[in-house]
Every structure is written in structure tokens, then in C-alpha cells.
Design a binder for these strands. Sequence first.
DNA 1: TTACAAATCGTAATGATTACTTTATAATAA
DNA 2: TTATTATAAAGTAATCATTACGATTTGTAA
Lengths: 137, 137
Amino acid sequence: MAAELKKYKMKLRDHGLKVTEKRMTMIELFLNEDRYLSAKEVQEQLHKTYPSLSYDTIYRNLYTLKEIEVLENTNFEGEMQFKISCSDHHHHHFICEECGNTKVIHYCPVDTWQNELDDVEITNHKVELYGLCAGCK
Amino acid sequence: MAAELKKYKMKLRDHGLKVTEKRMTMIELFLNEDRYLSAKEVQEQLHKTYPSLSYDTIYRNLYTLKEIEVLENTNFEGEMQFKISCSDHHHHHFICEECGNTKVIHYCPVDTWQNELDDVEITNHKVELYGLCAGCK
DNA sequence: TTACAAATCGTAATGATTACTTTATAATAA
DNA sequence: TTATTATAAAGTAATCATTACGATTTGTAA
Ligand SMILES: [Mn+2]
Ligand SMILES: [Mn+2]
Ligand SMILES: [Zn+2]
Ligand SMILES: [Zn+2]
């Protein structure tokens, strides 16, 4: 785990960001919970260690870590949720609606769609599958 | 247009719902604006006719009309938005980020995804394409 | 160690959505 | 047509996620 964390410290430094306790604890949390977490859940999980962790700090760091691709995010169940970035190539996710665990989907037909709608320019797309994972169904 | 509206009146009655002025005016609005509208936009558009239209009325009717498949909805730009239901078969949408207009996408590889993730049960999925429509690009 | 920019805290404001009590209205039957 | 009744809407407050901001603390480089 220590080597893993060192990698993230370097990533922060490479982007001219400070390596703070709060940030590293947040990254550790996301490494331990490999699923999407809301700001609220982050606050609850870190409350033991940092009883007065500010929402300002939480939201700013969630979006900062997303900028440098430590986290990825999605609007799920009406709120923005974040998870550790799990892969370097283009992919999407399956999310278990029971336990929250995710699986990577590799197949993405964005070219097929661009072909079907050849008079528009697709600049972005969202694909998300929901259901029950092997353990929950 | 009158025949079109009559169809929606029947749909309301078929579901045991009252045909009210507010509901019919909301449906007309969605027929005229063939794109996703937020509750706020609905309130603004209908403010001329009904200066005191309540948010309770707007939200309740948006979800009621969605239940009976007069409207479809999506979480877009951080809020729930609604549009007139445009087709009876399974489909998704392209949304122009400039003007808000939408186009139907017919191709959907949900079977391919179910095949890729054969140990999970996909019960739901979201596909949405964003970009610039022919007129805006 | 010191200096300073960046990060965090504490707290308030905002904006979307929900809740609830009172009042009005559409549907139905007399 | 009128009376009855359940549904819908108004008016307003509460809730929840998110954003904002001045005061304070902390990480980093000299
Ligand atoms: Mn991922
Ligand atoms: Mn549609
Ligand atoms: Zn894709
Ligand atoms: Zn589909």
C-alpha cells in the first residue's frame, strides 16, 4: 500500500499541488472502497479521523483529484459521486444497485453512434449500466 | 393540434387522472419545445399564463406525466429535466449542448454489454450523447 | 527557521427539490 | 344543473446538496 500511495503523492506534486493529510486520507479511503462515494459518504467515513472536515475541503479536493485523474465521477442517484480512477483507456461502468460495486465495461460503440448521427458532432457521451452483481443477484 | 391534445386527454383519463388546465398547458408547452426542460424552465414559461403556479404542482405533474409515459426524463446538467416522450420503441438521445435540441439514437448494444458482463444482471442502463447539432456546429 | 502561497475551517448562502396545510376544481351522481 | 367528493393546486416552509468566502492553518521552498 505504501508504494501505491507514493505514486499518488508524486501525481499531486507533478501537478503543483500540495500533499496534505486530508488529501492522502481521502485517496486512501477511495482505494479501500472501490465504488462510487458521495461527498456525504466521504464526510461520514472521514469523520472519525477529522471530526471537523469542512465541506469546502471535501468538494474542492474531490474535484481537484478528478482534474488530475486520480478520481472519476458520475451523477448517480441525484448526486455527484466519485470513485478511484480504475483504468487508463476509454471505458464505462456497470454499477450494482444493491451494493454499489462497479465493473468496467470495455465495449463502447461511440463510433457507431457518430456514424448513425453523421450530421452532428459528438463531443461527449455517458454510458452506465445498472443492475445486480454476481454476489447480489 | 387539437387532435393531438385529445389523445393526451384520453391518456390522462385512462389512468384515472383529472384533465386540468395546468396539466394540458404543460403538455402543450412540451409539444412546442421538443427538448429537455427543467422544472425552473417550465415555471418560467408558464409564468405568463399562471403567475402563481406552484412548484408542488410543477414537480408533481412532471413526475405524474412521466409515470404515464407522456414525458421522459433525464438528469442533465445537475438537474432533472423532462421532454415529451418521442417514440414507443427502445431508444436513447443525443443532446446539443448549445441549443438543447435532441435527436433519437436507435442503435443500442445492451445485449452486447450483457454478453460482456455475463455474471451480472443488467436491469437498467443510461446512454446519452452530447455535442453540437448540425445547426450549431 | 522563515515567508508565502495554498489549503482548510467555520459558517453562511444558494438552488433544486420535497413536504404540508388550506383552498380550489374536475368528475360524478342526484 | 346542482351537490358531493376526491383529486389537484396554492402558498409557504423545510430539507438536502452544493457553493461561497473571510479568517486561520499548513506544506513547501528558500
Ligand atoms: Mn473507471
Ligand atoms: Mn425519447
Ligand atoms: Zn464510450
Ligand atoms: Zn438502450
